[in-house]
């Protein structure tokens, strides 16, 4: 019953992933947000490793290792340094209050499951039932990007959206080719650096990281 056990484990981790996505949506503090992001990366790496073990796909081990190294260690470290330097440890303000956001999020999750059902029936992988969760966490992260008012949480939303995409790829097709994954990982890393640089510039310009100030840039 190894298959069944591993499948159950994957499902458990997928549930954790979705739960963390909801937690991130409701989290007000930047520090906790980063911690949650690291946990999400951890769940993702673990599930990838289990899929790799149960299907004997060796290249998935590499992506699991890469995920853990990048998303559990490196990116949270960079983000911590960033908020230290920028001194933005305070609470995150949202555009819509959190209960409403949660309700919208639940609606999105239902939508994602409804959308994923016909697709996951076609998929023959051991992980096919988790496609809905992957899609839901992508949409939830997107929602988080929309409702946050500060730049740092938006970037965390962006990174966690990438987590969801990665999970969707593993669950539907046992992951993308390694080259593509390496490329995506590099992209995320570079993207984070660029965001970091932009943060400094934005703050220099507007004395704050509130996105609201950038409305002035609009052309009249």
């Amino acid at each position: 019953m190894t298959t069944s056990l591993s499948q159950q484990l994957v499902n458990l981790l997928a549930a954790a992933l979705l739960l963390i996505a909801f937690a991130m949506l409701s989290q007000r503090r930047v520090l906790s947000l980063i911690r949650l992001f690291a946990w999400q990366g951890m769940a993702l790496g673990a599930s990838t490793a289990i899929v790799a073990y149960s299907t004997a796909q060796h290249h998935l081990y590499y992506s699991a290792a890469l995920t853990v190294a990048l998303k559990v260690v490196l990116l949270p470290w960079i983000l911590h340094r960033l908020i230290d330097k920028l001194y933005v440890r305070w609470d995150v303000e949202t555009l819509i209050n959190i209960p409403t956001t949660m309700l919208v999020g639940i609606g999105l999750a239902i939508f994602a499951f409804a959308l994923a059902t016909p697709i996951s029936e076609m998929a023959s992988t051991v992980t096919h039932s988790t496609l809905g969760i992957a899609l839901a966490s992508v949409l939830l992260s997107f929602l988080m990007m929309i409702v946050r008012r500060k730049a740092v949480p938006q970037v965390i939303g962006f990174l966690s959206m990438e987590n969801g995409l990665f999970f969707a790829a593993t669950s539907a097709t046992y992951g993308m080719p390694l080259v593509v994954e390496l490329g995506v990982a590099l992209d995320v890393l570079v993207g984070t650096f660029i965001f970091g640089i932009f943060f400094f510039h934005i703050r220099e310009q507007f004395d704050s990281l509130e996105i609201r100030h950038m409305e002035k840039l609009k052309e009249d």
């Binding site: 555009l95 997107f142 929602l143 990007m145 996105i211």
Partner: peptide, 25 residues
């Protein structure tokens, strides 16, 4: 359409994404 707010622009792409997902189904 041009509001100068990133949230609004993100919302546009979010709605487009949802609409396309529904449409493709």
């Amino acid at each position: 359409l041009q509001r100068g707010r990133i949230s609004t622009y993100l919302l546009y792409s979010f709605i487009t994404l949802l609409a396309l997902l529904v449409f493709v189904r």
